[in-house]
Amino acid sequence: MSNMENTFVHRQSSHCETGVVANMLSNQGRISMSEPMAFGLASALTFAYLPFIKINGLPLIAYRMPPKSIIKGVAKKLKMTVHSQKFSNQEKGMEALDSELKLGRCVGLQTSVYWLPYFPEDMRFHFNAHNLVVYGKNSQGDYLISDPVFEDVVTCPADDLKRARFAKGALAPKGLMYVLEDNQEQVDFNELIYKSIRKTAKMMYGLPIPGISFFGIKGIHYLAKQILKLEHKPMKYTRLYLGNIVRMQEEIGTGGAGFRFMYASFLDEASALTGDERLYELSKLTTEIGDKWREFAMQAVLFCKKRQDISLHTIAETLQECAKMEKQLQTRLLSLSVLK
């Protein structure tokens, strides 16, 4: 088999989807984009507590908008087109990938994490919405991959990649592959920044439907209440429940504190771009919010370690403080967009 290698500059990111978008854009060369900027422009910051979606018996907690919304969101803002394809036939899906590579393109893929052999053993779970970029294939038939969460580029045998692309179950990728087409449209970054901030701020409170309290600030308060209810559950369940929250917040490539630090970084960069000093002040507030989330994670783990001075009340209170601070941030973000 012949060697195929397209040029792709790899840059490590915190999170897979934002990393893929930012790297794809930067490699096109016209618009250089950082990962936090992609995250901010896609208005991806949120909070969701989804008790009806269970992963190994524990509720799903998300700190960002659902998979694929970031790629779509950024492309829409920049007036670019995402060409995506899904496949019912696995062989056809692999052939299509090869022909894209032959055309000199670097291709984004959605995959499962579990079947990627280059992942550390402890991080391999059945999560189907991972994103990566394939930029070539070597003479042994292994694919050359820029996986944004890794320090450097990696390789993956074809059989494993096929398995990862066609893993079944929740959020099944169905072989999804995509390329980003630049339509060479001019956009006003200042305008996009304020628009996306406004959208994030509006979403932060949660859905404006009574009775649904799983999202945004309402969702955080709701989770705090659930934590208090753990008192009546067996210790083993409580430990796994709290551990699950910490993992969703820290382990799943969020850049720390469930994307709060990444959003703070976006506000910092946005302040420099627009010259708006207020955005920098809000970046500082978001950093404090992130620090509070980290404190919450630490307390939750200390509780699991059975430290006497930490109770479920302490943990729930810290979480409620996070919610209060996010309310402040929301108010200030909204007043900001009123002026514009």
Binding site: D122, G243, A297
Partner: peptide, 14 residues
Amino acid sequence: WEVESFATSMAVED
């Protein structure tokens, strides 16, 4: 981060 690693290990050990 020790905190995160503890949470991961708990899940893996389970």
